[in-house]
């Protein structure tokens, strides 16, 4: 029961934070709401017994990625009103309609799948623990893992090249 209360609370929090994150004028405020959303999701991961991923979610998203956003926003020193006038209203309206229709489709898909099915009350042994995930990562998924490492390296070099001082 406590589980359910926690879940609904943080689900609501994540939706509200997400909504506010994409609607705030000031990007810094947006980032703060996004952090709130990511954090709520981390809690939901904990409720789902995915402890390791919850930790990664907090460290990588809230800690690294969103901090990077904040740095860039500060670096660019954007002020309100610098973004320029609103254009293509018709297009955006069509896009919104399409997005809502997609939500409607998701709803029918979820509902059409059948009666409500509860998750198993207990997670399987070791589910979501760092040791189990780690073992899988370094055995069966060793090649994707190494490739991911290369990708990250390339991203770092790329970011340095793109954002570094201009040569001329």
């Amino acid at each position: 029961m406590a589980e359910q209360i926690f879940f609904y609370f943080f689900a609501a929090l994540s939706i509200v934070s997400a909504f506010l994150a994409v609607t705030r004028k000031n990007p810094v405020v947006s980032v703060v709401w996004l952090i709130s959303c990511m954090f709520s999701l981390a809690v939901i991961y904990v409720i789902l017994s995915a402890f390791f991923l919850a930790a990664v979610q907090v460290i990588v998203y809230a800690g690294a990625i969103l901090m990077l956003f904040v740095f860039v926003i500060m670096m660019l020193n954007l002020k309100t009103g610098m973004v320029g006038q609103l254009r293509n209203l018709g297009l955006k309206f069509v896009g919104l309609i399409a997005a809502l229709l997609i939500l409607r489709q998701f709803y029918s898909a979820i509902k059409g799948a059948g009666a409500m099915t509860g998750l198993p009350p207990r997670a399987a042994a070791g589910f979501g623990e760092a040791a189990a995930v780690g073992k899988l990562l370094y055995s069966q998924y060793i090649y994707p893992l190494e490739l991911m490492a290369v990708l990250l390296l390339v991203a770092i070099v790329g970011a340095l090249v793109l954002a570094g001082k201009e040569q001329s």
């Binding site: 955006k92 997005a99 099915t117």
Partner: peptide, 24 residues
């Protein structure tokens, strides 16, 4: 007990909020 459908609905809503943000 948490239903699978509740989680999927949450996921769908967050996704569509993201889509709306991206488009507008």
């Amino acid at each position: 007990m948490i239903a699978l459908q509740s989680l999927l609905t949450l996921s769908a809503v967050l996704f569509v909020i993201g889509v709306c943000g991206f488009i507008t």
